[in-house]
């Protein structure tokens, strides 16, 4: 495409958004052994013994689960949204929208728990739950974005002799991209929260201190898990925000 040469000029260089680094650096700070217990000690909420596995391992497990789920969600959700928005597939689109609505309504915990009989304990049912739950915003935003593409632009593309594939890649997807990316962002950020529930299924991650804390009535432990997962969510939100086109 000539586009490369045509876009090169004018856009100028974007200033590096330093603000994005705030949440990730806070997260890293909290992960240094001893920092969080010391910060929480004055609140006098409960004993914090040494963590086993260490907090950074829990965070990495958590992040890994969410990232894997987001990858699968992208691989499944985008083609799905594309497939059901082709002309002559209104019924399939309605089905997809209904399923997405159901996914939004059914409690997360129920989805995760229902995956256990099928996949056993551990990270597998959690991943399945995250995928199912993560698909909801990606598919619904994907459909909404593709549906909102200006029909006259599509008509012009057809009139110029673009094939269906070219129309999709050159017109529809670029135009749907902002909405789609917003969906991916929502999906990822919510899944950080959903993944904490996975600890109840033995998936590990940052839900572990929360669940342990709740069952041992150790609020400090709950706070550790909550603070770290909130920081992880905010960090991912900030990083993904970089991809959002500016308006």
């Amino acid at each position: 495409m000539t586009s490369s040469s045509l876009t090169a000029a004018r856009t100028g260089r974007r200033r590096w958004p330093w603000g994005v680094l705030l949440w990730p650096s806070l997260l890293l700070l909290c992960l240094i052994p001893g920092v969080l217990p010391r910060l929480l000690a004055p609140l006098n909420l409960g004993e914090l013994t040494a963590f086993d596995p260490p907090l950074w391992r829990l965070t990495l497990t958590h992040l890994g689960l969410v990232a894997l789920a987001t990858g699968v969600v992208l691989g499944l959700g985008v083609p799905l949204a594309v497939a059901v928005t082709r002309p002559g597939r209104v019924a399939l689109r309605q089905l997809a929208e209904t399923l997405v609505g159901l996914g939004q309504t059914v409690p997360t915990f129920a989805i995760l728990a229902l995956a256990v009989p099928a996949l056993g304990f551990g990270w597998k049912p959690t991943l399945l739950g995250l995928i199912v739950y993560g698909l909801v915003p990606v598919v619904s935003n994907g459909i909404a974005g593709l549906q909102s593409v200006d029909t006259s632009a599509l008509d012009a593309a057809r009139g110029m002799g673009m094939t269906g594939r070219q129309r999709l890649l050159r017109v529809e997807l670029p135009l749907a991209l902002p909405v789609l990316l917003a969906g991916v962002r929502t999906s990822t950020v919510y899944n950080v929260g959903t993944a904490t529930v996975g600890a109840a299924l033995g998936a590990g991650g940052l839900g572990e201190p929360i669940i342990n804390g709740l069952s041992q009535q150790n609020t400090a432990l709950v706070l550790v898990g909550a603070v770290l997962s909130a920081l992880l969510a905010l960090s991912l939100d900030a990083v993904l925000g970089l991809f959002a086109p500016r308006t």
């Binding site: 000539t2 586009s3 045509l6 876009t7 200006d150 006259s152 632009a153 599509l154 008509d155 012009a156 593309a157 009139g159 050159r170 017109v171 670029p174 135009l175």
Partner: peptide, 12 residues
């Protein structure tokens, strides 16, 4: 309806 592609600039 003219139908320019809103995501591309004039040259593109």
């Amino acid at each position: 309806q003219i139908g320019l592609f809103p995501h591309l600039n004039v040259a593109q």
